[in-house]
Design a protein around this nucleic acid. Structure first.
Lengths: 135, 135
DNA sequence: TAAATTTGTAACATATTTTATTACAGTATG
DNA sequence: CATACTGTAATAAAATATGTTACAAATTTA
């Protein structure tokens, strides 16, 4: 399974970009994603920690973008929500007495690291503005 | 979370490549991965369905490679175990009455499709033999 | 200042996916 | 015929992701 964090976060940011002058409530956003507002607020908390958005509490409060959408890349969003891609590891520590078991994770890590560089290059070239303007 | 299928499968194949003349038992393989033998047999069943390995039942049975390791690419292994990478989708159907909700999944799919092509190109260039010879 | 609305967050519940275990029929070997 | 495998189903346990409820704190507006 893969968490929906990236998809949810980019959905939130796209909405914020579409309404640049409003503080959008978590409930409004949740209505577009079809997601519980608490979960929206959790993702927003993450965005706030990275200074991508700002929120206002209280009545008529909500959240708005705090950065220029042209300067925020999908790579940054990816890193805020995923850290890394890859094709996974076996759950248990492999057998250290086997030459393959002993080294496989290190080789997989190297492979996945290349994948990340690869994907990062792609995502670096796309800004939130680019993404949002497709709609 | 991400399933360990790819890692487990490539671990199995690396072992088979290291012992090209033996039928390896699921128990032996499981000992290297540190995984339940039944799960090893399940991944082997998948490999068999793709004609990558062949098994022999009964005493002294086991599994061996049925293809040339130089001709089997990590891309093929990836496709046998994952189908696709990506950064996920929100679990619920987004709101079709919202212009963003209505179209976001389609745009994400396009993005992920590019990611896949990107990663596939990388994995295409690495054979099982290449991977295994690192050990 | 009081009522209403919204964020922030914790605590808990449910759902889904992944991994593990048990069991046993079927097959080949010696 | 005993042994050691595969193949597969059924079930259990563990891990992760998502959902819900509750409520304190903040801010607006009447």
């Amino acid at each position: 399974m893969i968490s929906g964090k990236f998809a949810i976060t980019i959905h939130i940011l796209t909405l914020l970009h579409k309404f640049p002058n409003d503080y959008l409530s978590s409930e409004f956003i949740a209505g577009s994603i079809n997601l519980n507002p608490v979960l929206v607020r959790k993702e927003i908390a993450n965005l706030k920690a990275h200074h991508i958005v700002e929120s206002k509490e209280g009545k008529n409060g909500g959240t708005k973008l705090a950065v220029n959408a042209a300067d925020l890349t999908l790579k940054q969003i990816f890193e805020m929500t995923f850290e890394t891609i890859g094709l996974g590891f076996a759950k248990n520590q492999p057998n250290p007495d086997c030459p393959v078991g002993k080294n496989i994770n290190q080789h997989l890590e190297a492979l996945y690291s290349e994948m990340n560089q690869n994907v990062s290059r792609q995502l670096e070239g796309i800004s939130l503005e680019d993404f949002s303007n497709q709609f």
